[in-house]
Write a protein that binds this DNA or RNA. Structure first.
Lengths: 272, 272
DNA sequence: AAGTGGTCTAGACCACTTT
DNA sequence: AAGTGGTCTAGACCACTTC
């Protein structure tokens, strides 16, 4: 139920419009329960739009309804919808284009490619790397992975191992753990056949869109196997990047450990 | 001069207010020069407020004028000032507090401490480290440092070397290069005597406020001297963090090379 | 009670894209 | 010409803090 940015029991007392009503169901407990979950109207609208994005009512790359249409749908003013979409755009869930409309963000646009890959050459322009897949197998989740993916130890997961080659040079070794129930039918062949970024495949083929991630960075020595694959001496310093990726609603869906060779490339970060 | 979000020659044709006028001086070239520098009114207001922040009209931690006062001062509506301040708040230049007003952001508030120090323990809550200063000397800028600081090779710079101790354990070795003309009179003693974060000192004692920074991260082997200072074996992997910090107007004022021990701590980063 | 930022609405017009 | 998002204004009321 939608509630105004006013004490819930108070009559709206608006300037001229009708009271905004979502699914008007009389709550069994009239006062306290509503007050506890209060948030401004534009955030409630934002939550409703996010829910539609999550449920796939509008797919990545597609146009969502115009601000006026959404205002009519939710029975609020255009300005309120506008503020909701402003926040969604700031969080990169949607992209606004003047004169055209608002689109669901997608990992297929080049613009998004380097949001989740911060490794850039020390000199020269960023180039998107080539993937070489080493392995893709089903497994039962070890307890640590299960904890991070919000699963139970022993639940089905998929493990992918791959090399990233920048300008034909092996530079990153990734080990990727995916929630098995969300990525049924993922095989090394499908990965290898796909053109473009992995997150684009996840979004198009499995309906799982990566929204945000947290990374923990460390410097670690290369173990013998890794050193061999990356063509560096044993114990050479590597940048270790431990990532947990989330889809809508901050639900974790991927755990990833990357080992980066940073002699001619570096991880770039902006502090604001 | 302030211009509306309309073609500059066109009369404003506003709904009821007076035409917004800044310093109303007839431009010598009436048309073309204005059209080239066009930006929406709220961005012009934002630039004017930023200019006042830069010039110290309101100092870090202080209250800036209310939205209504600024609206009167710039002869625009409160909504336009509001949008300008919204962006300044999003960029962490100011902090809004309902019922109190809008404050100039400061490195003295604990909230800001970890925006520029991403090293956190693998387990347990972040604790602010203790500094031990090893050196603070005046020098002529090497060409590489001069380039990054927008100086000429040979211009005056100040070099600071220090250790950061987390829970009494030496964990970070920093080498810091500062624009010499901005930090006259900085000594190791003043640094050692100061309570709180270094950027707080810079802001209070030298009127230089750090706004944003870019960092380049790599894994590197510890050289003998560094290994000794950080208590790690020679060639142990260290996280190297090369930072350039900027004040208002994206003017670079600090270059910093940090070497982090990441065995019990890690560098944390959010991707969005 | 007064003042501040926060929310919500309404309406006008502009800039841009597509039809 | 029509439709979209972008800007700007005005006014009302709410939430919060201080006097």
């Amino acid at each position: 139920m939608l509630t105004m940015a006013t004490h819930p029991q108070t009559p709206p007392a608006m300037t001229g419009a009708e009271s905004p009503i979502g699914s008007l169901r009389a709550p069994s407990v009239p006062t306290a329960s509503v007050a506890a979950t209060f948030s401004p109207l534009y955030r409630q609208i934002k939550a409703l739009i996010t829910q539609s994005l999550d449920q796939g009512e509008w797919k990545p790359g597609e146009l969502i309804p115009s601000e006026m249409e959404l205002a009519l749908r939710y029975k609020v003013s255009q300005g309120t919808v506008r503020k909701a979409i402003d926040e969604l755009a700031a969080e990169n869930l949607v992209v606004r284009r003047q004169g055209r409309g608002t689109f669901v963000a997608t990992h297929h646009e080049p613009r998004a490619h380097f949001r989740f890959l911060r490794l850039v050459p020390d000199d020269g322009d960023p180039k998107y790397p080539e993937s070489r897949f080493l392995e893709c197998k089903r497994m039962r989740a070890p307890s640590e992975i299960a904890r991070l993916l919000d699963l139970k130890a022993g639940d089905a997961v998929i493990v992918v191992r791959r090399l990233l080659l920048f300008e034909s040079v092996a530079t990153v070794l990734d080990e990727i753990w995916l929630n098995g129930s969300l990525f049924k039918g993922l095989t090394a062949e499908r990965l290898a056949d796909y053109r473009g970024p992995m997150y684009g495949l996840f979004e198009t083929e499995f309906g799982v869109r990566m929204i945000e991630a947290t990374e923990k960075l460390r410097a670690v020595p290369a173990d013998p196997t890794t050193a061999e694959l990356l063509g560096v001496p044993e114990n050479a310093p590597l940048l270790s990047v431990d990532r947990v990726s989330f889809t809508y609603g901050s639900r974790p869906v991927e755990v990833r450990r990357g080992l980066y060779v940073t002699t001619r490339y570096h991880y770039e970060n902006e502090l604001g």
